[in-house]
Design a protein around this nucleic acid. Sequence first.
RNA 1: GCCCACGUAGCUCAGUCGGUAGAGCAUUUGCAUGGUAAGCAAAAGGUCACCAGUUCAAUUCUGGUCGUGGGCUCCA
Length: 639
Amino acid sequence: MSRQITVTLPDSSPVKAQKGETAFSIIGKISPDLQKAALAAKVDGVPVDLSFPVDGDAALQAITFDRGGAEIFWHSASHLMAQAVRRLFPDAKLAIGPAIEGGFYYDIDLSRAIAPEDLSRIEQMMQKIVDEDLEIRREELARPDAIRLYSEAGEVYKVEMLEEMEVDTVSIYRQGEFYDLCRGPHVPRTSYLKAFKLLSTAGAYWRGSEKNKMLQRIYGIAFPDKKKLESHIEFLEEAKHRDHRRLGKELDLFSIHEETGAGLVLWHPKGARLRNIIEDFWRTEHYKNGYDLVFSPHIGKSSLWQTSGHLDFYTENMYSPMDIDGQAYYTKPMNCPFHIMIYKNKGWSYRELPLRWAELGTVYRYERSGVLHGLLRVRGFTQDDAHLFCRPDQMPDEIDRVLAFCLSMLRAFGFNNFKVYLATRPPEGSVGEDSMWQAAIRVLEESVKRARIEYEVDEGGGAFYGPKIDVKIKDMLGREWQCSTIQFDFNLPERFDMTYIDSDGKKHRPYMIHRALLGSLERFIGVLIEHYGGKFPVWLAPVQLAIINVSDDEADAAENLRQRLLGLGFRPETDRREETMGYRVRDAIAKKIPYICVIGKKEISDSTVSVRKLGENKSTSITIDDLIRMMRDDVAERR
RNA sequence: GCCCACGUAGCUCAGUCGGUAGAGCAUUUGCAUGGUAAGCAAAAGGUCACCAGUUCAAUUCUGGUCGUGGGCUCCA
């Protein structure tokens, strides 16, 4: 006997349905278009397959690709890929294959390496399975049965996962001969997976641990229609185009040489120009914000690093010591011990705190060869480091200040997309009382809340010496890059026995915060290059203005203009090569110079210049005074 | 460090199933004196990453080293 139920939609309108009717069928009553677009559904907030029978009154919501369904779609695509791989390589053992931001992957244990040529074979097989239009069916079974099923199939990784699960019943999804352990939900049929592309292969450790076997990972992307796939591929092309390594070469900003050493950056004049502009701005802002600037050496005696604990906790990242007069000296991997030595140079009164000492300190850290990446991951880099020393009661205010300063700094460079992570105590190997950790985390969290920024708790992600706030910015590739970090330190004040005299006349331990806003200049500039695609705003552009004379007759006028602008603090460049104008204009565009300024007979006679902005293909005639005003405004507005 | 791929002129890339190599751009030199995205021509430029091995012969095959790329682990 059938019974009526009432299903409530997100807009709270009710729909009548039969008890046990599938989500798919009910969605069809709402709209055939929605039924077509639906990949899965949410029943009372729980994601389920479209085949899910709704047994009673419930809230129902269709999940489409664009509204929360991408992950489901990609996960189904990863099953599809795994099925194709198993058809082509029957001895393949499957590990895990989740959806990730921007696609999916599957880790597979295979007797032979997957060559790039194999990807198209796998894609073809995937297409075949899509054409077979297999139904994707959920099946629930007792965990021991699943273990038996997978043991017989020799799927050791699945067995390992199943054995560690703490549930009685698990679900598998079947499509044709293929089945995969999976929580689901999934799209109903393989034919839903209309457009996909396998992007790359890589090695990946089973469960991410170096101790385990390295599996083969295949990355892919999928979409419900070809158009979306194409525009995604275009996006990837655009990202490639903005790659800071490519632009660094094209714009002659920096280079890294085998002869010099991996991960060691050489800054060319243009790149150094950019870096100096950033550094000058940084220094000015720091003085404005109540910081003092200090300098410290590149090397320090081993006893210093012994005291700081770096030789105990950080040696893997430090280079071998050098011998100076029979004493071991290390190149610095961090600046903090030096700043602490400045602190310890005299006694401090509570009235003198807080102290804010900043330094563009160049540090050297050993990074494993495989992780080096352009400017984003190097072995020698300059941190925009600072250490704050304050009384406990000053802490909340200091955190507020540094957080606000941090965001204003990042915004100045055109970054408005942040994500903040609050990293708490690591499960093992950290120093300090638990109560101190709790208190510090509370201070950090409250400050983040006051700043009204979106944040996430990174459980156990803190440093061994204290909790921290990491601010990440998103680049054009959609990757998050960590630049800023604000870290509590319970360790160093203790180790160096730092003190100040409080109003009670007794010695007290100051609180210490490490912080970097840009992170490292290398990484920051790498991210900046990608963010702007090399088209720097006028205030940052290494060359702001290209001056092109039409013929030799205007060479002096071009040079005079250059001198005048140079005197006003601008960064102009003439191009008086014996090349046609078209050639030199093209070259200036290729170098992404924000303003191109042409001087010919006409301009000299009415004392104007013909100005063309980067990205526009028309030029306007303006007076030199207007040009100067325009550029001044750009710089002042940091455009 | 680990897995896979790669390393040919300053740059981007062809090529050699083993007989020491080419194109475009850039460079230099002529000619052209040009009005907003490449004027014409010529020249020069390479120990084919480095070191071993196999071979009559290696840039090409094998091994190692260094470097680069995509990832993993780690991180500013």
